[in-house]
Computed example of a mutant assay.
Amino acid sequence: MSRQKSLLHSDFHLPYNPKLVERAKELRKNMAPAEKKLWNNYLKNLKFRFLRQRPIHNFIVDFYCANLKLVIEVDGDSHFTDEGKDYDAERTAILEGYRLKVIRFTNDDVLNNFEGVCQQIEEVITFTNS
């Protein structure tokens, strides 16, 4: 209960933890290579505005588009442990509880199948926006 009180609500009625702002800024400055590639070569030029390293609830999501209610996560090796998979499943369930669509890619997907990743994002955008 006290955890919820420390969250601010944005225009989109998503809980926002102001304590995560500094960490989000650090993550923006030090993006992983796969995140940087997806951002610089695709997301920042889309007609829909994506935000990088956006605090939502008690998490920082990699990319968020408010208009599409879409979260894109790019996962590194830590996400493939049993603990990482459990954490991601819980996190995804919470985000989906706010009616957000969450899609995930691995670093390897982005670095080695970039066109396929972009095509999948386009398909989600087309479906979400229709």
Rank of each mutant, 00 (worst) to 15 (best):
A93W: 05
R3L: 11
R3S: 13
A32I: 05
H13D: 15
L27K: 03
C65N: 03
M31D: 02
A34V: 04
L68A: 07
L27N: 03
V21Q: 09
K25P: 00
I94H: 02
D88Q: 15
N112L: 05
F63K: 01
E115Q: 05
T92Y: 01
F63W: 02
D86M: 14
T128M: 12
R54I: 01
R23G: 05
P33R: 06
K101L: 08
K19E: 13
R23L: 10
K5A: 13
E83W: 14
D77T: 15
N113H: 09
A32K: 06
D86G: 15
Q119H: 10
A93Y: 07
T128V: 04
L70Y: 01
K36Y: 04
I94K: 02
L38N: 03
L68D: 08
I72D: 01
E90V: 14
F59P: 00
R99Y: 06
R91N: 11
A66S: 06
M31H: 05
F114G: 06
D82C: 08
I94L: 10
L7P: 01
R54T: 09
F50C: 00
L46A: 07
C118P: 07
N30G: 06
E83G: 07
K25H: 10
P55Q: 07
E35F: 01
H57P: 02
V124Y: 06
T128N: 06
A89V: 10
K44C: 07
V21F: 06
T81E: 11
D108A: 08
K85F: 09
Y42D: 03
F63T: 01
S78L: 14
H9R: 08
L14I: 09
V117N: 00
N40K: 07
R54Q: 13
L27T: 02
G84M: 11
Y98R: 01
P55R: 00
S2K: 13
P18L: 15
R91E: 13
V61I: 09
N30P: 03
F59A: 02
L8I: 15
F48K: 08
V124T: 13
R91D: 12
R54E: 10
K69D: 04
H9L: 14
F114C: 09
D109I: 03
M1Q: 12
K5N: 14
T92F: 02
K5Q: 15
E26G: 14
N40L: 10
K29H: 09
I94V: 08
K85H: 08
V21H: 04
N41V: 06
I72G: 00
I72R: 01
Y16K: 11
M1A: 15
T106F: 01
R52L: 05
Y16R: 14
H57L: 10
S130Y: 15
K36I: 05
L68H: 04
R91W: 11
H13N: 12
P18I: 12
F12K: 09
S130R: 13
D11N: 13
I56T: 05
N107P: 07
Q120F: 11
N45E: 07
Y16N: 15
G116F: 05
D75Q: 05
Q120G: 12
L7E: 01
F114S: 04
T81A: 13
P15Q: 12
H57W: 12
Q120N: 08
N67L: 12
K5L: 15
R91A: 06
N129V: 05
L14V: 04
A93S: 10
P15W: 02
P15C: 13
I125A: 02
F105R: 00
N45W: 15
R49T: 14
E123A: 13
K69Q: 11
E83S: 14
D109H: 05
E83P: 04
